[in-house]
Amino acid sequence: MARELTPEEIGAQKKLDEKKLARRNKKLEESSFNITSLMDALTIILIFLLKSYGSDPMQVPQKKNELMVPKSDTMSNMSECVDIQISRTSIVVKGKKVVTLTNKQISSQDAPDGYIIKNLKDRLDDLRNKEIEQKQEKAAKFQGEAFISADTEIPWKLVDQVLKTAVRAKYYRFSFAVVKMRGS
C-alpha cells in the first residue's frame, strides 16, 4: 500500500507539476511559427514572377527534341503578328495545328506542287481576311508580317516552303524567333 505524502512532499510535488506545465506552455508558444517572414518571401517571388510573365506579346514554348529555337546575338524585340511554329513534328499557326510532319518533311499530299502547303495557306488566308476586317474598322492597313519560331534542326527546305506559302498568302515580312544571348 502506498505511503501517504507529507504536506512538504505535496508542496514539492505541486511545484514540480507547475514547472512542468510552464515548460510545456513555453514549448507550445515557441512552436507557433512566425508567418510574416514567409509572407514577405512569397510576395517577393510573386512580384518577380509577375514581372517575367507577359512582358512579350507572344510566347515561344521551348520543348526539348520538339521545338528549340536557335540562339542569336540579336537585341531586337518582337511585335505582335501572326505566329507560325515549325516543330520537328508539326506546323502550328496561332495555336492551331495545320500540318503533321514526317521526318521533318512535308508529305506530297500536303504540298502537291512541292512548295505551297495547302492547309497552311488556307489558315493564313483566313487570318489575313480576319485581320483586314479588324484593321478596316480601325482604319489601319494590313501589315503582312509573320513571326516564325522554328526548331534548330529543321532543314532549310521546310522553312522555305513555309515562307513561300506565307508569301502566297500575302505575308511578305518575317521575324524569326531566337533566344537572346546578350540580354535586353
Binding site: 512569397l42 510573386l46 514572377l49 540579336t74 531586337s76 531566337v178
Partner: peptide, 25 residues
C-alpha cells in the same frame, strides 16, 4: 492565394528572353 498563384506563374513564366531577326523575302 499566393501558394496557388506561384506554381501557376512558375509554370507559365518564360525565363529565357526571346528576340527576333527581321528578314524580307
Amino acid at each position: 492565394l499566393l501558394c496557388l498563384l506561384i506554381p501557376f506563374l512558375l509554370l507559365s513564366a518564360q525565363f529565357i528572353q526571346i528576340g527576333i531577326i527581321l528578314v524580307d523575302t
